[in-house]
Design a protein around this nucleic acid. Sequence first.
DNA 1: TCATAAAACGACACTGTTGTCGTTTTTAAG
DNA 2: CTTAAAAACGACAACAGTGTCGTTTTATGA
Lengths: 207, 207
Amino acid sequence: MSPRVSEEYKKQKRLDLLQAAKRVFIHKGYTRVTMQDILDEAGVSRGALYAYFDNLEHVYIELLQQEDRQDVFHFCAEGAGTSWQQLRNWIEKQQKEIEQIDQTLVRANLEFFSSHHYRSNKESYPYLTARYERIVKALTDFFQRGAVQGEFSPRLPAPSISRYLVSVVDGLMIQTAHLGSEQTKVAEQMNTLLFTLEQLLDPVQTK
Amino acid sequence: MSPRVSEEYKKQKRLDLLQAAKRVFIHKGYTRVTMQDILDEAGVSRGALYAYFDNLEHVYIELLQQEDRQDVFHFCAEGAGTSWQQLRNWIEKQQKEIEQIDQTLVRANLEFFSSHHYRSNKESYPYLTARYERIVKALTDFFQRGAVQGEFSPRLPAPSISRYLVSVVDGLMIQTAHLGSEQTKVAEQMNTLLFTLEQLLDPVQTK
DNA sequence: TCATAAAACGACACTGTTGTCGTTTTTAAG
DNA sequence: CTTAAAAACGACAACAGTGTCGTTTTATGA
């Protein structure tokens, strides 16, 4: 009687399956992936996989949530250096991520969300909207805090600058996903972005 | 003997099929569309459709080419107003297009290209790359021409500004494709873009 | 009006993927 | 060591979509 394996075991197995799935998604994107691919990669039977996940979409959503849990947005109280320096760091981090796009889920995400826009009418997926708003909010708060502390003198409303910043980073990310980072000159564009942010925020230069 | 219908007829039929396909793609995106959808929409049989196109991908590529042939990039010699005014016009045009995203192929394109990145390794699709380079080149030329004429004083290299501009517009387009134009505040972001372009180009103000 | 080439039709065989379910294996409590 | 619960297995039926091909219809030159 009683469960044959521990909850711990099941939790771990679930994670293993998600890790296998992640490898597959990074390598093949979303649309072309089948349950077969994942169970092969995980070295597990059809029945086993379906015991944990109902279908591909379910796998992907779980994976997304798991990934989300990991990288919590870190703009809240970073301490390190001036606000302007923090912003530079953040942008540099984005650049790194864009340049390593082949080792991330970015492309798969792009596929997933673009192909789900149409089905999602029924479900009205809150995920993307929530994520977008969360990031915009974090940036806006950051800019406003910087303004209060006299480190920034925003020339336009903080929310406008936030949204704009997100657009640029997203745009660059997606272009790079399609064209490759040599083509889109990521570093160069990040410099241009920094230039425009300097104009938008007029930070106190501590040089 | 001899062909039963004119070349003209066949050309027209082809166009009709592509128009039907376009309607379907605008409505359903790319991934979820089947040949069945298209032949239903066109009111034609399976055999007829396959007589003109080998498969879905073929249909889509033909449609892309047909669309491309229509809107030739118009930055070459527009004449209307100052360079800065021309730039404003162009951006306004982009804004209109973004706001009407539901009536365009933008979403389908996004799906098509993101799901084709992985297959395209074999074929190494030149389409996107070529399109990107073409637009960047047109913008760069435009900026340089403006600089020579004393209308712009670019603060960064013209190609950098071009690429950056394309990133912003693309980013905004894709975000809007996912989130809707209320969410992304298209107009507001376009204003921010204009502000930054003003800083980047330092145009002579003819106000 | 007839003959015929080709355009249109749609049934069908084929393929790839999904999700299920009866069977086998494994695990740990008794 | 036995036993039963449940975890893992994998064959399979069902389904959806594709591309083909033999048949029917249509358009036009003779």
